[in-house]
């Protein structure tokens, strides 16, 4: 087993993220997955947009593209189509991926291009100072919703299932090995794989909403996770937290897995094609 730190550009560390921000945990889990899959690091391209989560790509020793706000799936589409042997992974946030970049995300899903999108959902715009995002829960305080958010929020996984993503999963940033397992699973999936990671923002969300710091927020994530999910393995499992601790229902686990033709430009690759 390789030390995952060997995948970092260590001269760029420490990273810019705030103390207690779980994005670093997610990055580590991802690197574990890369290591598990023994991916050729020369052939791994990571594409990001703008935001805290998108900054992650600067720290990893792969081919990395830190693009524009919300457009990472589009950049990734060009990369993958032009060079299919690349493993292309998009790292995006909830604002980046679902607001400004929502259109790109759903169309990449619809095409079923063979890339993996990691959406780090911290329920707020962190980089810009804690404004409400499409994922901010109703009632939650943000710098642009001082009296509580009055807009309903997106369920990213349901959105992506609707958009036709052939692999959709949700994991918690507090579950490192499950994250790794799902990420490895998602990257191995042929076609568009979407993995939403419930991450935290202690600096803004935690502070504005009295959730606490990083440690508290990791626990809080479990309380956002209330739903029931389908099987990850053949054994199958379901998740549940007592109703008293579940303000919002969010299923975790692999929510969809489907074999369907993969988009590769003018032609498509059938699921059974090698």
């Amino acid at each position: 087993m390789t030390d995952v730190k060997s995948y970092l550009r260590d001269w760029t560390m420490p990273h810019v993220l705030c103390p207690g921000c779980a994005h670093g945990i997610v990055l580590r889990a991802f690197l574990e997955a890369v290591d598990q899959l023994q991916l050729d690091r020369d052939k791994l391209a990571m594409v990001a947009g703008i935001g805290c989560s998108s900054r992650l790509v600067g720290y990893v020793d792969f081919c990395t593209l830190h693009g524009t706000h919300g457009r990472a799936p589009a950049f990734a589409t060009g990369l993958k189509l032009a060079r299919p042997e690349l493993n292309v992974v998009v790292v995006t946030g909830d604002g980046d991926g679902l607001a400004i970049g929502g259109n790109h995300l759903i169309h990449a899903a619809r095409r079923n291009i063979d890339i993996t999108v990691l959406l780090l959902n911290n329920a707020i715009y962190g980089m810009t100072g804690g404004q409400a995002a499409p994922t901010t829960p109703e009632g939650a305080v943000a710098s642009t919703t001082p009296a509580g958010n009055t807009e309903p929020s997106f369920d990213a996984c349901k959105l992506l299932i609707g958009a036709g993503a052939s692999y959709v999963a949700r994991v918690l940033a507090a579950t490192p090995i499950e994250m790794t397992k799902v990420m490895a699973d998602g990257m191995s999936h042929r076609g568009f794989s979407f993995i939403e990671v419930l991450s935290d923002c202690p600096e803004y969300y935690g502070r504005y909403n009295n959730v606490g710091g990083g440690a508290e927020m990791l626990t809080w994530l479990a309380r956002r996770d209330a739903g029931v999910a389908g099987p990850l393995s053949s054994k199958g499992f379901v998740k549940h937290v007592p109703s008293s601790a579940t303000p919002a229902g969010m299923m975790t686990g692999v929510l969809k897995r489907e074999a369907r033709p993969v988009f590769a430009g003018v032609r498509r690759i059938e699921p059974d094609e090698s």
Binding site: A174, E178, L218, V238
Partner: peptide, 10 residues
């Protein structure tokens, strides 16, 4: 459970 691996049986 720090990794939140324990959940109620539905």
């Amino acid at each position: 459970c720090p990794p939140l691996a324990i959940v109620a049986v539905p």
